[in-house]
Amino acid sequence: MVVSRATALPARHLTAAAEVDDRDGFASLLGSTFAPVRVRPLADGTFRSSLRSAAAGEVRVSAMSGSPCVVTRDADLIRASDPGFLTVALHRAGRAAVAQDGRHCLVGPGDLVNYVTSRPYELTFWEPYETVVITVPLAALGSHADTLAGRTAIAVATDSGPRDVVGTLFEGLAAKIGDCTAGEANCSKEYLADAIVSLVLAELVDIPPLGAGEDLADRMLAHCLSHLSDPRLTVESVARAHGVSVRYLHKVLAPRAITLSAWIRRQRLERICRDLADESLSGRTVSAIAARWGMTDAGHLSRALKSEFGVTATEIRRSGRWERGGPRPAAGLATA
């Protein structure tokens, strides 16, 4: 694991862009932009990440993308002198999880989630991802700071109502980072910073608390995504790991229209397809790639791919292309 000890950049109107192809560089980039973190790649093959970032006043706007990885800010990386920031992220692509303060939420494209840098957190990007991040000093949030800092790791959809407007703004800021924030300091950028803070407050102050079932569902799905490589992962093993019966597990997941065994199967097949299309893994056999994701029966894999996506492993390797999806939409988070 790599730790960056750089401090967050204080410059009022700094604009920066960088692409890195190793975890060392990415950890350093995140550390210098947000806060010191540890980075652990999740996928085999080439590791790539990029970040575009700029500041207007005390607000920072960043657009991130990259390979699957885990970004962790542990307690030993947090110092009393570190400034505290509220980080609000709009997830644009891929599936991920945010864990902080004992909560663990799953996010898909179109979801907003927030966390604070003054307490430990963990971001898990299971797939290649894109996200837009707005960082605001907790001190700039006034009386709302404690409220927002207490509503971390709760995913909020932006597909309807006022939150759709906020999501659109985040997208626009990401597309125009340089235009919106570069240049000499002036009042317009201070007004922009104030407007972003106001929208963050409008978006997040009324987030309802997670119900016990919702939090447990997220924990169970996150557990599955973290253990896809284990062929012993089953509905029964997930229930045991969370101290519930199989019947109660199905009850918790029912509102998301998820049949867990089918969901696990599809998650594995999607990752196998992604790796089969990765040129950097062309030297690995199909069986080795399948085993990497917990499927040890090559004959079953062939039938499963044909049934789920209508293609074979050979066809995916020959084309060198794979886009997540297929004839059967996955349920719950997998439809994101």
Rank of each mutant, 00 (worst) to 15 (best):
L216Y: 01
E190A: 10
T124L: 04
A262Y: 02
T152L: 06
K189N: 04
V286L: 08
Q267H: 10
V2S: 14
D275Q: 05
I177A: 07
P68K: 08
R92L: 13
A43S: 08
M220Y: 04
T312M: 00
G161F: 09
L192N: 08
A157K: 12
P10T: 15
L204F: 01
R73N: 01
G332H: 10
A222Q: 02
A56I: 04
R274E: 12
L14T: 15
A195N: 04
L14D: 02
V39T: 10
R247Y: 07
P162L: 14
S245P: 07
D24N: 12
S319F: 03
T135K: 14
W293D: 02
S53N: 07
T285M: 01
T335M: 00
T46C: 09
A202V: 00
R321Q: 14
V238Y: 03
E171F: 04
V20W: 06
E279K: 14
V235I: 09
A193G: 05
A54H: 06
V71N: 05
M295F: 01
V252G: 08
E130L: 04
A257S: 15
L42W: 06
E323T: 05
T285F: 00
D44W: 07
Y191L: 15
A97E: 13
T314M: 12
D44T: 10
R163G: 04
I289L: 11
I154V: 14
A35E: 10
I316W: 06
G178R: 15
D164I: 14
P83F: 13
S198Q: 13
V252C: 03
A288E: 15
G66C: 03
A330F: 00
T87V: 15
L30W: 11
P41N: 06
D76E: 01
Q267V: 02
D278Q: 06
I272Y: 12
R163Y: 07
G94F: 09
R12S: 11
A241Y: 06
A96V: 06
A140C: 06
G108A: 09
E19D: 09
P208W: 03
G243T: 09
L204G: 01
L192E: 01
A43R: 11
R12W: 00
V205M: 04
V61Q: 03
V235Q: 15
R23Y: 00
V286H: 02
M220T: 10
M220I: 03
F34E: 08
A217M: 09
F34H: 12
A55W: 03
